[in-house]
Design a binder for these strands. Sequence first.
DNA 1: AATATTCCCGTTTTT
DNA 2: CGGGAATATT
Length: 748
Amino acid sequence: MQESPPRQRGTPRAMDAPPPLRYISYMQSGTEARIDALLAGLNEPQRCAVTHTDGPILILAGPGSGKTRVVTHRAAHLALTVARPWQILAITFTNKAAREMRDRIDNLGVGEGMTVSTFHAFCARTLRMYADRAGLQRNFTILDRDDRRKMLKQAIERIDLSTANWTPARAEHLVSHAKNEMCSAADFEARADDWRQQQFAKIYRAYEALQRENNTLDFDDLLMVMADLLRRDEELRAELESRYPYVLIDEYQDTNAAQYAIAELLTHERKNLCATGDPDQSIYGWRGADIGNILRFEEDFPDAAVVFLEQNYRSTRYILEAADALIAGNTNRKHKTLWTDNDQGRKVRVLEFEDGREEADAVAKDINRRIRAGDSPSEIAVLYRINSLSRGVEEALIREGVAYQIARGVEFYNRKEVKDVLAYLRVLVNPADEIALTRIISTPPRGIGATTVERLLQRAGELGITAADFILGEHDVTPLGRSATKVRDFGALLRNLAKALDLTPPEALKHVILHSGLQAMYAAAGEMDNQPLANLDELISAASTFSQERPESTLVDWLEHAALVSDVDSVAGGGGPVTLMTLHAAKGLEFESVYVIALEHGLLPFSREDEEADDEEERRLCFVAMTRAKEHLTLTGARYRMLRGATRRTTRSPFLDELPDSAIESAGRERKRSRRVGTAPTGALPPDIAEWSIGTLVEHPTEGLGQVMSMTRGGKRTLVDVAFKAGSRKTFALEFADLRRVDFDDVG
DNA sequence: AATATTCCCGTTTTT
DNA sequence: CGGGAATATT
């Protein structure tokens, strides 16, 4: 998380009322020159977005349109005119985005004191600060996905439901979904209208109870509880709004109901909400993101300024044309007219192969060829829909001798050794955290097994205390049977480790790693694999960095940081190798050369028999992938694909048929006879007749710009008569014609 | 209580 | 096919 400390020297305390906004808008000398510098080199809509100050504004930013630049310059502009830096709150989804934004604002030299944070980090920090008002204990710990599953499993067992019908994964999905909608267990129970939902309501309720007993929150709780608190506590809501009169939310298309509520509540009076995003890049619907939030913005915030950033600075014309044609197939969107001044470039290649191996070989060879020709490996990426597709490419790259990295393979903080240490710290900070306790009680193995743990938990339950309190409190351990002394020894160990609570995060880590026995355990295994110990060292240095950046931070702060950060900052260098990653992971990145593989029906667009696919989201995903490419874009597929050990015949991705002939060059499988938009096998694309009328401006690949002179609606098709600027006049069947609507949307 | 074995199941995953 | 988790050994 890139947050500023809550208070900066020389600035008012966090909760002091800010000076009246108009009063501080008097500019200091030199400010005008700095504003000019901020605006230099911006295009017209970008400038609009940057100089807008009060009231709601929606910045619809196409891919490669310089959004981050606009957002950072806008924040800087606010700080130079109507606001003080510490009155600005910028919220992102990822830590990476937060860091980037903070760095770039810092470089502009006016960001001192600004709060730049992820949604989750902001909520966690605020909830801890106002724990009493939120009905929480200040030392709550944050559950990750694995922990949450374990706890759900306990919940299911506790209410004696068979886990066969209720897998923790299934329950997790439902709980997460409910929380994203801000639906508590009680709410869910109230509206459960069949037996199955009632069963689930019981699980949810039991899970809530367990969380309370363990003094934990899961990721979704951070948002839901925060939204709920802001709703209930008007005084606090108003306090936060006056603390942060200017709020900026990035990637707004990815907000869920809880995040939407938070955004709305934080800006309830002043409406100083700046939302940036792109509905066409909404790819997290399955995680609860509601694309409707951004599409409804103008209704939710009447009088909102709307700025379209449509000029693309990233990709060649061919790439942009292909991507734009694809996304035009969606109906649930805000129409943008993407354009670029960049060169036409090379056509998008569509290559089809016999099988996955051939495909992977060809991709690897092509990558090798590029690198030999002098291209930088770090500017090359291979993208795929599902992780299991990486294997074939990896093997092919190895055969070719090309170095690669997989983005977000095993996340650092998810490694066993890291979670082990964190579990120790969690128990020290929050003894009620039973998930962490049961993890460390036999890590390293100390002769305490499942049955002993069972008895321990039962005995603690009888006494009405937590298991950790029982162990720490030197209670009578005889009811635990044979392993009683082992438990007593473990209690002594915990008391020794508790010294870590008075140390700085890195020192606490060192203390725990050494005295818990983890050091010895991993050293013994070190003959085979010394990675764990190296990772622990890295963990310590990450904690040191954290401590240096925030000298006043406590162990609780660092644990929170660790829970909300998925990866330590790797040295991002230009000299890195070829990158392999999922389409989702590629969002926000760009590469000179991009290969998107496995464009096959069922894989991209992804679908499963039992679940209905969201083809529009899949199309957005493909759009996101294509628009990562700056110079070269290659789309590949295979006639036969081995998946989960079985080889199957594939069907060409319907998305390929939606790309305009003019922008692609194909090789491989025979093309389908008709590849026109209107007859794409998805059936998703009968042109929206309502969007066409006499006078509509159109573009044709060979004829150029034109205007609809008349329309005739026949039985099955609609004929349009178009007069072209070049002088010609032609009649087309709208369903089959390669006509594109040209729009001139109002800007700002 | 710790280790070997089978068996089961399978998207994407910012936090 | 391959990883994780429930189950069978020692």
